[in-house]
Design a protein around this nucleic acid. Sequence first.
DNA 1: GTTCCGCATGAATCGATAG
DNA 2: ACTATCGATTCATGCGGAA
Lengths: 292, 292
Amino acid sequence: MEILTTLYLGDSKEKLKMLSDNSVDLIVTSPPYADQRKNTYGGIHPDQYVEWFLPISKQLLRVLKPTGTFILNIKEKVVDGERSTYVMELILAMRKQGWYWTEEFIWHKKNSYPGKWPNRFRDSWERLLQFNKDKKFNMYQEEVMVPIGDWAKKRLKNLSETDKKRDNSKVGSGFGKNISNWLERDKAYPTNVLHLATECNNKNHSAAFPEELPAWFIKLFTKENDTVLDPFMGSGTTLIVANRMRRNTIGIDNVPEYYDMVRTQIQQVELYLLESKTEYEKTKSEGRISVR
Amino acid sequence: MEILTTLYLGDSKEKLKMLSDNSVDLIVTSPPYADQRKNTYGGIHPDQYVEWFLPISKQLLRVLKPTGTFILNIKEKVVDGERSTYVMELILAMRKQGWYWTEEFIWHKKNSYPGKWPNRFRDSWERLLQFNKDKKFNMYQEEVMVPIGDWAKKRLKNLSETDKKRDNSKVGSGFGKNISNWLERDKAYPTNVLHLATECNNKNHSAAFPEELPAWFIKLFTKENDTVLDPFMGSGTTLIVANRMRRNTIGIDNVPEYYDMVRTQIQQVELYLLESKTEYEKTKSEGRISVR
DNA sequence: GTTCCGCATGAATCGATAG
DNA sequence: ACTATCGATTCATGCGGAA
């Protein structure tokens, strides 16, 4: 199966109209925050942020599959000593637009930006808002399981009576089964708090987005050959990770430098893959790039 | 200076009217979260939550000093597969009421409630919303500095223990300048993410949150002889910690059992302090209780 | 007195069943 | 159809008794 990369140079609101209905499995994006990145995106005033984003999210709702998920990385800025409310307003507005606000993950940035202010501490977390088109969506939880805590080693030696009793309440069916489940368990499901350091990027752009972040959501919400969209791709972290994980990718950005940079980088990855192939049919079937 | 404890049995909305304007330095509270089951616990329906809370927050705004801070611990529940929006709406409504929404701290609960569902992971964080009456407020950042390095977590965990011992090392200025400078350099300001475990078992009752949580905010936003208010004191964790830290406290609850329990516990602490005093003037000046 | 280990239980959430 | 109740699922922690 061929993996496709499609890049668009231009405004998201317009370029998204070129995508088909119900064609995307996962959207992961970090749009320009209000009043920030003035040089590149022109900066949206906090008061106009919701108004600016709603036409875009409307398109995203259209192109997302009913089983798909939209992960929005965002954090409100401090304006005149208090937190702006545009994220709150955006959530409310998107629900009216038809989105379900399924969950809010917390991205805890371990090495947050340094600084000192008299009235606040360093901001070391961001929101990862999960929106869905339908209440039923694809979620592959086993893909992101984490090692269980040390307490488990001791615990697994002996099962407490209470555990047996709790399991017992399910009368009759599969009593011995539960115990064996616990005995073999060395991994646990994660929570809705993600601990990731911000990447110390050596590149010449500003998007501090660790690869683990999109990788986690790509593993959780898609499988191979699914399609991942980033309507504000920036330096393309999401796309590059998704491409590497053998997902089809669609990226949009209105900054030519970003567009060129991502295109070059994806092509390099694809070339590398091509060179490492020995069989003809693999060469033929993989690594196709569609850059428009 | 005498430390005063004032307890009210009754509805917060009404009892708060008995407090003077601009008389409280810090409000730390965890109101009942919205509950769908109105009949069983008298919970507030999510749709009516904002309407229910606004009269109370109006009183809180009145009694808070201009230099004071209001910390609101809250988390929205999942209703019908998605997160409720009443917290978002509450923030917006409280701003209209005159509050400044200064900051949102994250309380990361490491031992969150277990469980597995097809569409979400365990919820392991809560909001700690900081509201202020004025853009200038008291904040004693040095009081909550944490050691740098691996021992930071351990130290944070022991903070409440240190409070009990009423750390004397600062007072006795026997340190040479070199050493104190060196010590200072080992500390860093915290961020807006707090890592604390929920306390499983207290003696007789279950505490809503660990003592470290109110202790942290009490240190950060008040000094000795300031006044701390909890309009939904519940089992009284905030009040007991504040009392131990030599802050005047005001507590309100409409559950007689809680009221009696907190009153008893505060009195026991005060009696213990009394018994440990040897000098007459200390006995005279401390430990007065005003229970109404 | 330390350290180790067993154990109960949390501001949870979903899906099925009952009224 | 809609709402209330109940069973099932599952992880980390502090406490108390034991070595």
